[in-house]
Write a protein that binds this DNA or RNA. Structure first.
Lengths: 225, 225
DNA sequence: TTCAATATTAAGAAATTGTGAAGTCATTAG
DNA sequence: CTAATGACTTCACAATTTCTTAATATTGAA
């Protein structure tokens, strides 16, 4: 499942840039790299990423300086800013958080910790309250991960749920097969042509009412009849 | 099923007043109705309800005005204020939140969403019973760090307790494995894939009833069956 | 009618979770 | 100080469910 979030990463050490960006890309993030503080500020203004990871020790401008400068601007009010800091320097860590950072990651960087933190922070900003969808007799509860038709609970497997959830998020809209693959399966996973059909069939079968209609040659759409 | 909470509801449309108050009363709330802004302020001062639902477009004083006025007074510092707003006007929504509202509900009003939000907000205010959770025959005492099933005390280890406590804090909600790791173990600690399962098994074993259900590929949820 | 697109089916691949046993670590009792 | 205990984690593999594929039938738009 593609997360599709942009992350601006700034560090003067090419190795760090390389390893961190590799890991984040593997998680589906869009990574923009900067080699120093000034470049970071310029790219931040250009891309307005929801998350910025800054090394503290950088030429031109330190991560702390960059953070201070960005925080002064309204458009970076809600941006998540994370510092990269050497393990030894605890004072800097504290200093960083006081400056307006949301978290910090200590070097040497453990890919697992990095990913875990980034995911956690990202989830915090992307929390949508679209948890309950009501569509006629059909109720989809994203939080409870279940659906019910005429108040009778129906169990869907993960892919089925995500597929239905996607289609139902915009009733009437036709989702192209590509679009569905990208959002439910992600860009990296390749599956055969018939996979979507099979899932659609299972959903139709389980719900018992045809709320998904086929638009031949185009895609599928959710439609309560 | 009386929750015993008072809610002040202000709207100039009798139909809305009717339908919202009907639904809230059905949930056990005490509803006080006001037909305009001034009446809302007067009734708020009289009853001091823990929650106030305000339509934005009202004669005499708009919901936003009412909110501003109330927020200036110490006694409404912790009152939960929710706006009713027409779906179209997104700017107003934002404006509302900036004015000091806690949430907003868009028209047309879906009873389920309404109730769900009101319950959630009410729960947030009524934080007192955070320490003792009662879920059917299961009682979780967060303060004493122990639980009992059908009045028989059961001893859980710390991680087990925290895990159960987390899941039970939102019955029905599916907690992703990531979410669980983050909240019980923290972002820094990395544990293997099977760790959560093992703890879940121990909890199931000790309680004897399967109150934790697996949502394959997603996570776990608490559910008294 | 034609034919590419979609539906259907069943089977087996793949992924995820359950389980028992064993190992590590810290704390406590003797 | 040492052994014993219990909490926590890991591992290997079993059990289960979910997902995908491939083969065939059916559909519907041009």
């Amino acid at each position: 499942m593609s997360k599709g979030g942009k992350i601006l990463l700034a560090d003067d050490e090419p190795d760090i840039l390389e390893i961190v960006s590799y890991n984040l890309k593997g998680e589906g993030y869009d990574v923009i790299c900067a080699k120093n503080g000034n470049e970071a500020i310029a790219l931040a203004k250009l891309h307005l990423p929801p998350m910025i990871i800054l090394d503290i020790m950088m030429p031109e401008k330190s991560g702390i300086d960059v953070c201070k400068i960005l925080r002064l601007q309204q458009q970076f009010k809600d941006t998540v800013i994370v510092f990269l800091t050497a393990l030894s320097d605890e004072n800097t860590e504290i200093h960083g958080l006081e400056t307006g950072a949301d978290d910090y990651i200590t070097k040497p960087i453990s890919p697992k910790v990095l990913i875990s933190k980034v995911n956690a922070l990202f989830r915090r900003v992307t929390k949508e309250d679209t948890s309950i969808l009501e569509l006629g007799d059909l109720t989809i509860n994203r939080e409870k991960y279940n659906i019910s038709y005429k108040n009778i609970p129906i169990t869907l497997a993960r892919k089925e749920f995500e597929l239905l959830s996607l289609l139902a998020s915009k009733p009437g809209k036709v989702f192209l097969r590509n679009e569905i693959l990208e959002k439910v399966w992600g860009t990296e996973v390749i599956v055969g042509d018939r996979t979507i059909d099979v899932h659609v069939r299972k959903i139709r079968q389980k719900i018992g009412v045809d709320c998904i209609s086929t638009v031949k040659g185009v895609g599928y759409k959710f439609e309560m009849l």
